[in-house]
Amino acid sequence: MVKVELVGVHSVKKRLADGSVKTYYYAWRGGPAIKFDPAKERRKFTEEYLRLTRERDDAPYQGCMAEIIRGYLKSPHYRDLKPSTREGYDFAIRAIESEFYDMTAKQISAPGTRSIFLQWRDEMAETHKRKADLYMSVLQRVLWYALDREMIEKHPLERVTKVNDGTRRDIIWSDDDIATFKAKAREPLVRALLLAAWTGQRQGDLLALTWSAYDGHAIRLRQSKTGAHVAVKVSAELKRILDSAKAVNAKQETPAATILTNRSGQPWGSGFKSSWRKAMAAAGIEGRTFHDLRGTFVTLAYRNGASIREIAEITGHTEKDAETIIRKHYLVSSAAVEKIESRTLTVNQGEFSKLASGDNE
């Protein structure tokens, strides 16, 4: 049975006619049933729980985002929305509430929270840019309500550029950022960081990556967004951490199928984003997101001699975007870019032969 950590959720086990046991969940003891299975539909389960508990006098998560949203839904601004506009707001509010329901007012006002919200927005923008902008706009409105009612001390999203107007493609993690995170974070999260920084793949693809994709020398996968099959030869640094994690996983009573696992050695569910945000805050790293590690890979690949075309084939960036990242961080003229493009490298089906050395000093 999945452990349900939401405050007040009540569960009851019942034996069915076929002899199997089923667990039923309720918003509170004696309260309405939650129709979703937390093991299969965790986000919908959370959304339904929060919806069902909103009107209770003792509604949970007082002083948190959940309470702010409860207040906003009763405000004139929300109630005066046109039905068509309110429908879009409702979708956004459910997503915001399920993601940040237990974030306290103090945390919302604290330094670093802006980066947390922007990371959430940017991850969504990978597949739905318009939705990302809408959800961010609604979150801004909810937080303006909270600031106006003195529920928070600072609005962390006063000015936010829309995704369609500007991207984070030229933002990367510095060597110091990576070193700081590695020193502060737990091993499962360091593993996630290095896997992203040394492969350039998207978060969703990395979380789904199984051990069968790693042969000890390279990682092979099919990108969910582009459908492209890519193979990335692992660096020495990444190989060390993957080999160690694989050995530990093999000793488990029930080894995990995925490369990235939580502290309990189980595949990450929706909890990855929350754990990542907390690790970023603990490390004191601001202005960087998990998504920015894709751009970081571009710079690491360049350090090891890869061409713009090869980088784009691996990451799914356009060559123009890859060139933009490289220009900003390493190059000073178009002649330098052309020099990179003219290099002759030993490449086998898109793998970086030089990247395998891990020599990025």
Results as ranks from 00 to 15, higher is better:
M136V: 10
L206N: 03
I171V: 12
A125H: 07
F272N: 10
N360M: 04
L207P: 07
W276K: 12
E48K: 14
Y302N: 11
A306G: 12
V7Q: 05
G88M: 09
H291V: 01
S235Y: 08
H10W: 14
E48D: 07
W173N: 01
A179S: 11
T167C: 01
E97M: 02
A256L: 06
E99V: 14
R263P: 09
G269A: 11
K154P: 03
W276Q: 11
G63P: 09
I311S: 04
Y26N: 08
Q140R: 09
A228Q: 09
Q349M: 08
D102P: 11
G265D: 07
G305D: 05
R42S: 04
E5T: 08
G166F: 10
L50R: 00
T324K: 10
N348D: 10
T199R: 09
R288G: 03
F100S: 05
L134V: 12
D215H: 09
A196H: 04
E55I: 11
D148K: 14
V298D: 01
E48V: 03
R159N: 13
P255N: 12
T23K: 07
Q266I: 11
Q252C: 04
R130H: 15
R114P: 06
P83I: 07
F117P: 04
L345H: 13
Q119K: 10
S334W: 04
R149E: 02
R141I: 03
I285M: 14
